[in-house]
Every structure is written in C-alpha cells, then in structure tokens.
Amino acid sequence: MAISRARRNLIAELGAHAFLLTFTIIALFPVILIIINSFKSKKAIFRDPLALPNSETFDLIGYTTVLTQGNFPLYFWNSLSVTLASLFLILLLGAMAAFALSEYKFPFNRLTGLYLALGIMIPIRLGTIGILKLMVATGLVNTHWALILVYTASGLPLSIFILSEFMRSVSADLKAAGRIDGLSEYAIFFKLVLPLVRPAMATVAVFSMIPIWNDLWFPLILAPAEETKTLTLGAQVFVGQFTNNWNAILAAMALAIIPVMILYIIFSRQLIKGLTAGAVK
C-alpha cells in the first residue's frame, strides 16, 4: 500500500515536471532566441537562428553600435528611480486607503470604494490631454515627478482594490485585541495589519512595477528629454532609428530585457519572503 502510493506520487510528480517544463520552455524560448542571436553576425542570424554563437559566428557589432550610439546607463537609472518611487507611493498610500475602506464603517464608504475602483477600468491614457495641461501648468514637464505622479495615480486603484480584498480576511479578533491593549488606529494598521498583508503587498508591487517599467506612452509625452528618458523609450527610439540593423536591434532588446530580469529576481526573493511570512502567520 505504502509503496504503491509512493509510486503514484512519483508518477504524479514526473507529470507535474513535464507540464511545468513545457510551459517554461514556451515562456523562455523567445527571450533566449533574442539573447543568442544578439551575439551573432548578421549572416548567422539569418542562416541558422537557432544555433548558439560559435567562434565563427560570434560578433559583438550589435552591442558596440548600441553602446556607442545610445545613453543606456542613464536611461536605466531613470527607469529605476521612477519605478521605485512610484511603487513606494502606490504601496503606502494604497494600503492606507485600503485599510480605511475595509476596516471602518463611515458614510459613503461603499461609494468611496467604487470611486477609487473606477481607475481600474479606465486607461489613464484617455486623460492624456488633461494630464499634459496639468503638468505644463505646474512646470513638471520633463521631470521624473510628472511620471511618478501619473503612475501613482493610475496604480492606486488596483492596489487599493487588491489590498482591501486581502485586508477583509485579516482576523477581526486580532484587531479587537489590539484595541483592548490600547493600540492607536495607526499602530493597528502599521504593526498588526501591514505585516499580515505582506504577501498581497509583494504581489501588488510586482504587478504595478510591470506597466510602469514598460510604459512608452507617458515618457514619450511627459518626459522625452534626453536626461529624463526611460529605458523603454530609449530602446524604442533606438529600434526606430536602426530598422534594418538587426544586430543593433537584437542587442538593444537584449539590453532592455536583462535589467528587468535582474530587477525581478531581486523582487521575487522579497515576494517569496512575503509569501511565506504570510502563510506561516
């Protein structure tokens, strides 16, 4: 009995591996294809796209073009600072609002929640003209603040929606106990509730990060200056200029992918810590 059960588990595990491996290959294939081909000569890119670069086909011409023509380290720094500042505001302000909505009964609570959730449904791009007018009026055009404010405003609704869903499942007894112990409402939020919704916060962080990092639209309209250009905009401008230079395009794409990968690996450690901290509570 015990043996057959162990064997059945083994078969199930192998099946699981096969399934997951298939999807892993599908997910990674295009990315690997770009990276491999970015190190090859133009001829080799077309002759045998699937082959690894070897001594004969290895060529860094794409990278030298990119690094001599573009200003990629600066773009990277710009993207990083805009993304991190927006994330901080989305998480802190979003969690505060979510707590107010999920914890207290007050007049117009449901209406306020609906009002704040409206933003999930409307792409903020539809308000571009108004946003541009606002940024021109406040002198924020071509500063990172313009982007940070736009991304915070558009990220808040989802953050509030997800976090308040999670906060509703935080035990009411725990908060009641905190109040009996004389904790202020702020202490209950920062010391009791926030640590418990850490997994949800990590999730919101990862999901808010993606559209911000990858956005092309607002950097183009609000901060197109060379010193405020983000990585995605830089890469797009570059790809547009070098349409037929496959080496340069592949290298630019590889350079745009690698930082996101690193950023994600750093975040995903936090994400896993957050996930397990939440599960073990």
């Binding site: 505001l89 302000l93 979003g94 505060m96 609002a97 707590f99 107010a100 909505l101 207290y104 007050f106 306020t112 704040l116 409206l118 933003g119 409307i122 903020i124 539809l126 308000g127 571009t128 003209i129 108004g130 946003i131 007018k133 606002l134 404010l149 736009v150 915070t152 405003a153 558009s154 808040l156 609704p157 509030i160 202020s184 409402e185 702020y186 939020f189």
Partner: peptide, 30 residues
C-alpha cells in the same frame, strides 16, 4: 470625528483625483 479615517484616505484620494479623475473628466467634456 474619526480623523484617522481621513488621514488614511486623503493622500491616495487627492493624488488620484487630481492626476487621474479630473483629466478623464476633461475627456468626457470634450
């Protein structure tokens, strides 16, 4: 009056209203 509710809600609501809702209302007006 429970000030803490306002303090929890206000920063998010203000940024969201000024940078997102008002520009979108401008679109509706157009």
């Amino acid at each position: 009056f429970r000030w803490h509710i306002l303090i929890f809600l206000a920063p998010a609501a203000i940024i969201y209203t000024i940078v997102m809702i008002l520009p979108l209302a401008e679109t509706l007006r157009l």
